[in-house]
Nucleic acid binder design. Structure first.
Lengths: 242, 242
DNA sequence: ACGCCTTTACGTACGGCGTACCTAGAAGGG
DNA sequence: CCCTTCTAGGTACGCCGTACGTAAAGGCGT
């Protein structure tokens, strides 16, 4: 008889943040969502996302495999926990500086740093957006930053999504779309070999011109800086009445 | 003794496009990479990406599981084939119209249409960028479109990446980050319930304000249009000397 | 204080996965 | 014509997520 409970989800909710971590009864848990998330993050950092399995993490924690399911109902939720854990790495000042563009730039740089520390994060964030407690803190600070901008809240959140996606995209591109154990060198070499073969068929004159005129390899940081600059300008300018 | 072979990759290359589909010897193959890719695409469309397994596809084609490995050396390569297959759905005019912005808009709309037809595509494209034959055709046409723009080729390709990422990102967002079999309604309801709970704690005043002022749910098409407009402006404007 | 009943810990087991390896047999090239 | 090279496909191994059952722990109502 659910008398005073919120009636929206009858049975156990799918969203992990709606499941209380602990109800107070029974023996003291030997672990916590936080410790499990930390172990998963460490493992993913060290051996790639595909090394993250319930069995591995349980072993890492010295727990039985099935014990984890007392904390994490499904493996997908583990990814949510991991994302929120690394989202906790943002460091916000007490209040925004008032320079919207500078603050957004700073946020983007922090995000890129996080995603370089955790190369799996971009993939997970893009494929499974999830707003844990740390995600909410981020959104809160972001909205404070955007306070001077005369957009309505919906638009501000759209812009947040776009910026977030841009950084993820860049991080993925920088990673080269490689599987964790793969050799970045060889991947590049093979790609070049393939493009050369393709261009030599003569079917791709534009590509041929682009490749032959390709000068410096362009270091990632400056590419990021330039692209971020463009994107920020686009996001902060008033709606284009095209 | 590799006498006249391109010496870059000694053993069999990791890149599937560098492996010839057929060498001419032996019995006639009963299948082809194209037919396998088509089966995989159909299966992913119908039951989601997670339903795509070597066994399922082999069964779908009436082949033995291990026979597939004569065509697709690893499962990851199957994803490359799938992406290239749907990339083949682009329809390019004989030559660009000369209106760069309009042509880029058209490309973005086609891409969004493709990703709505194939909800798994955005995920795969983002996590495993791969330039198959159809990807090369796309790049070729894109470069032709960008011909009037006075950027160097490197920058043009960066912009291509950014636009591509933007559309993927939007498609993922639109999909709601759901697993294939999941109920979109329930996910939204639970998310709202969670945010309401969070806001009621009083820790998130900005979010509270944003949510309470949230008016119309905003239909996806107009959101895409507005965002695309911004992004195109950002990409086509000359470098901001900020 | 006691005992109930929820919760935790964890072993076992099932079905599915990617794929290494092996055996046959088909068909172009010398 | 045979030999070499390819294809088809079966079997098997070691992973995976997780449903289910058992046993013990410990807060809570009485």
């Amino acid at each position: 008889m659910p008398s005073s409970k919120t009636p929206s989800s009858a049975s156990t909710p799918e969203l992990i943040w709606l499941r209380p971590e602990r109800t107070g009864r029974g023996p003291r848990p030997a672990h916590s969502r936080a410790s499990i998330a930390a172990a998963a993050v460490a493992l993913a950092d060290a051996e790639g996302l595909s090394a993250v399995s319930m069995r591995r993490i349980a072993a890492e924690l010295g727990a039985g495999t099935m014990s984890l399911y007392n904390y994490v109902p499904k493996k997908e939720h583990l990814f949510d926990l991991m994302v929120d854990a690394v989202t906790g790495e943002y460091r916000f000042p007490d209040r925004p500086s008032g320079d919207v563009r500078a603050d957004l730039r700073e946020l983007a740089h922090q995000q890129l740093a996080i995603m370089r520390r955790h190369p799996w994060a971009a993939t997970v964030v893009v494929t499974r957006p999830s707003l844990g407690p740390n995600g909410l803190r981020f959104a809160e600070y972001y909205l404070a930053v955007m306070d001077p901008v005369p957009f309505d809240s919906g638009t501000k959140l759209e812009v947040m999504s776009l910026l977030n996606g841009f950084v993820c995209q860049f991080a993925e591109w920088e990673r080269g779309g490689l599987s964790p154990g793969q050799d970045r060198e060889q991947g590049q070499r093979e790609l070049v070999e393939y493009m050369v073969q393709a261009v030599m068929t003569g079917q791709y004159p534009q590509l041929a011109a682009a490749l032959s005129s390709g000068g410096a390899p362009a270091d990632p940081d400056s590419v990021f800086e330039r692209s971020l600059c463009r994107v920020l300008t686009a996001m902060l300018s008033p709606l284009d009445p095209h």
